[in-house]
């Protein structure tokens, strides 16, 4: 059973997203809404990872060795300025999108494994990830015209 690998993928992706929210929020402290919201969402991501941990652990017992090229690297440090903010938010968006689709995949597997407990975790967390994506899209749409057209 390969479910453990996807749980591991999602677990790591959630932790990395949490770290990126923290780092990007700190880097853009002068944008208070970015700073405060990123801090909150970082906590949310770590909460997701914690909820996944016992399942990852349990399914790991039945899993073969981890395949190559399982994890992806979507973020490699913050940038500054208006354009930099936009790019940083875009990194977060892609990372959150990875989590979003992984929740869908893990949810399907939870049905297959008849694992009601895992399904409950997926259902509560995937909604929060969906809101994270919406927030990022909202904030990027707001910032884009000024950063890309008006700013020098």
């Amino acid at each position: 059973m390969h479910l453990a690998h996807y749980l591991g993928l999602l677990h790591k992706a959630q932790n990395r997203l949490g770290d990126a929210f923290t780092e990007i929020g700190e880097a853009h402290r002068d944008e208070p809404d970015i700073f405060h919201t990123c801090q909150r969402l970082a906590g949310q991501c770590r909460g997701h990872a914690e909820k996944l941990a016992p399942f990852a652990h349990r399914y790991a017992e039945d899993a073969p060795a981890e395949p190559d090229r399982l994890h992806s690297q979507l973020f490699s440090g913050t940038r500054s300025g208006g354009l930099g903010l936009l790019r940083d938010l875009q990194d977060l968006y892609l990372m959150a999108a990875e989590c979003d689709i992984s929740w869908a995949v893990v949810g399907q597997a939870a049905y297959g494994a008849r694992d009601e407990d895992l399904l409950a975790v997926v259902k509560s967390c995937e909604q929060e990830t969906a809101i994270q994506l919406k927030w990022l899209r909202t904030r990027m749409k707001q910032a884009a015209p000024q950063a890309l057209v008006a700013a020098e």
Binding site: D33, T37, R40, L41, I131, Q132, K134, W135, R137, T138
Partner: peptide, 9 residues
């Protein structure tokens, strides 16, 4: 909106 984050529906 989502009232916690301000994300637009």
């Amino acid at each position: 909106h989502d009232l916690a984050t301000g994300a637009e529906l």
